[in-house]
């Protein structure tokens, strides 16, 4: 058991992050190496400044709002929560005063980030079973959603369980020790492996590892390509 915990919490995390970073960089480099297209591919009417409209298209998705308002709502909630989630995880490494502009304990939103992510993921998953989206979907789409769903359920549980059961093990300090030690390449997992709750963390990290491992090779690259593509459309 200990060996397995260790493998998932230490080498697998390193490996996944390495693949993630190298993979994303490699994919971007591979695209940059390709020749440029010579014809303009924007649509009209053009609005100036184009870059500002491209950013608005990227982050506010006005076209989706017009076509599918419900979907737009969940997309915005989901992506905003992902953003908060990333901040939350950074705070698990170290507390930064800049994130405390809005004062909070851990994870801005006190567990609601997990809940909104969970609900929006359920929505994304269920809509894939409705006829139009089902016909388009490939296994990758379900695979990613289920992977994230599992990661998020387990992650939220780690937070909520403390409130539910009122126990003092596996605290923020513990995580900070673990993650900081990882960052310094002197892995120390003792603070997070003595508890009966460890298996939750191990599963959470395991699924998250799979997700970021797969990221560069999947449609998740949309997170990066969406900005240049929206700029191309705006001209």
């Amino acid at each position: 058991m200990d060996t397995l915990n260790y493998i998932i919490l230490v080498p697998m995390v390193y490996f996944s992050f390495a693949v993630f970073v190298a993979g994303v960089l490699y994919r971007i480099a591979a695209i940059l190496k390709k020749p440029s297209i010579t014809i303009p591919l924007n649509v009209y009417p053009q609005k100036k400044p184009a870059w500002l409209h491209a950013l608005a298209d990227t982050f506010l998705m006005p076209a989706v709002f017009k076509a599918k308002p419900v979907m737009w709502f969940f997309l915005i909630v989901f992506h905003a929560s992902i953003f908060l989630l990333i901040i939350g995880h950074i705070e698990l490494i170290h507390s930064f005063s800049i994130f405390q502009i809005i004062e909070h304990d851990i994870f801005l939103g006190r567990g609601f980030v997990g809940l909104t992510l969970f609900i929006s993921l359920l929505y994304f998953l269920f809509r894939r079973f409705s006829s139009n989206a089902r016909n388009l979907s490939v296994p990758e789409d379900y695979f990613l959603l289920i992977l994230l769903l599992l990661t998020i359920i387990l992650g939220s549980e780690l937070d909520w369980a403390r409130t539910w059961f009122g126990y003092q093990e596996m605290t923020v300090d513990g995580y900070q020790t673990y993650l900081k030690s990882m960052l310094l390449f002197k892995p120390d997992i003792s603070d997070v492996t003595y508890s009966g709750h460890t298996f939750m963390l191990v599963f959470h990290v395991f699924f998250a590892n799979l997700f970021i491992l797969f990221f560069p090779f999947s449609k998740m690259m949309h997170a990066i390509f969406t900005i240049p593509l929206n700029k191309i459309r705006r001209g």
């Binding site: 994919r27 591979a30 695209i31 940059l32 390709k34 020749p35 440029s36 297209i37 591919l41 076209a63 989706v64 076509a67 599918k68 979907m71 139009n132 989206a133 388009l136 979907s137 490939v138 789409d141 449609k219 690259m221 949309h222 390509f225 969406t226 240049p228 593509l229 191309i232």
Partner: peptide, 21 residues
């Protein structure tokens, strides 16, 4: 496979928003 077309091919999330357009 130019830069742009490669990105088009990489990026679709199969969300289906385009379907009814």
């Amino acid at each position: 496979l130019t830069k742009t077309i490669a990105m088009y091919l990489e990026t679709c999330s199969r969300c289906g928003i385009c379907t009814t357009s």
